[in-house]
């Protein structure tokens, strides 16, 4: 256990250390400007003169002002503890119903993602079943399903939002549709692979038992596809979340983690952006871990887990 976690912790510690160090050159100009306005003496005097100096040089020349770098209000790069404090404040100390609560925004994003993911993966599985059983469907739809993965579908997300809003659909449903669309194709492709994974020998065996098509489907194809299904569900849920977040961008003042990112970028609230970013990361990790947990349980009961 120590052998496994030790290196990961060390790498994480190095990343956090580098982050704190990176804050110094990133934030030094703002820190010096504020200090000078309050009457401190800075070595190259005046904001304009400092423009020509490199940020690292400024840090070396003014070591006494470095301390304030990690606690600015609108830093270019907030320090890790500032982000954690903002996360704590907006999740634990603010009421969950308040507009500034990340719990509220996270819930809005999560519900759209969840609904979209369920719609997308269910219809993906259905289409995959159709493709496996109907040769015409296979030949006509499958190349498009594969080709569509090379197309930046995400780019049309804002358009779908605006179009659906002009028809009168707003809020949860349009976002869910986009996230459904994004989880749809990975599930189709993975599920088709999974349903086709039984070997000829297995299929022949079912034939010798004179199994019907539906019996073959339920007793052979469906169980055999489980590992493939879960692998593509994990990809699907991650892209569902990305879809929801991008879909929330055009709804600038609205709710959701994507809207929070955009409003943070409008008002230069960097700490807010980073907190929203970490919230999406935590959400994504939790969703993938949830699917992974279900996968482990299901495969174990099926006797497939290694």
């Amino acid at each position: 256990m120590i052998n496994k976690i030790g290196p990961v912790l060390a790498v994480l510690a190095v990343i956090i250390g580098l982050w704190y160090l990176a804050c110094m050159p990133m934030n030094i100009r703002l820190a010096l400007d504020t200090a000078e306005r309050q009457g401190a003496v800075i070595t190259p005097e005046g904001r304009v003169n400092r423009q020509e100096h490199s940020a690292i040089g400024l840090v070396i020349k003014n070591p006494q002002h470095v301390a304030g770098i990690w606690s600015q209000k609108k830093p270019r790069l907030p320090a890790p503890h500032q982000v954690v404090a903002e996360l704590w404040r907006t999740t634990m100390e603010v009421k969950p119903t308040s507009k500034r609560s990340l719990v509220l925004h996270g819930w809005v994003t999560l519900s759209a993602t969840g609904l979209g993911f369920i719609i997308g993966s269910l219809s993906g599985v259905l289409l995959a079943i159709g493709i496996v059983h109907n040769r015409a469907m296979d030949m006509s739809v499958m190349p498009w399903a594969i080709a569509s993965q090379t197309i930046p579908i995400l780019a049309i997300a804002p358009m779908i939002i605006v179009v659906l809003a002009s028809v009168g659909l707003q809020g949860l449903i349009p976002k869910a549709l986009i996230s459904a669309y994004l989880s749809f194709f990975p599930v189709v492709v993975g599920m088709v692979k999974g349903l086709r994974s039984p070997s000829h020998m297995d299929l022949d065996l079912m034939q010798t038992w004179s199994a019907t098509r539906s019996q073959i489907f339920w007793k052979l194809r469906m169980p055999a596809s489980a590992p493939y299904l879960f692998a593509s569900l994990k990809i699907g849920v991650a892209s569902s979340l990305v879809g929801t977040i991008v879909a929330e961008l055009p709804a600038g003042g609205g709710q959701g983690l994507g809207a929070r990112l955009l409003s943070g970028s409008y008002y230069g609230q960097t700490v807010q952006i980073w907190a929203a970013l970490f919230a999406t990361a935590i959400l994504a990790a939790a969703l993938v871990a949830l699917i992974g947990g279900i996968e482990k349980g299901v495969l174990k009961r099926m006797g497939l887990a290694g």
């Binding site: 052998n3 030790g6 290196p7 990961v8 990343i15 970028s265 990790a285």
Partner: peptide, 29 residues
């Protein structure tokens, strides 16, 4: 050996995250 045991799991984790979200920060920088 150390990096492959330390960095690869971190990279695996980060690869699954919605990195598009860094767009507002990078546009600001």
């Amino acid at each position: 050996e150390f990096l492959s045991r330390g960095l690869v799991p971190v990279a695996n984790f980060l690869a699954a995250l919605p990195i598009v979200g860094t767009a507002p920060i990078l546009v600001m920088w």
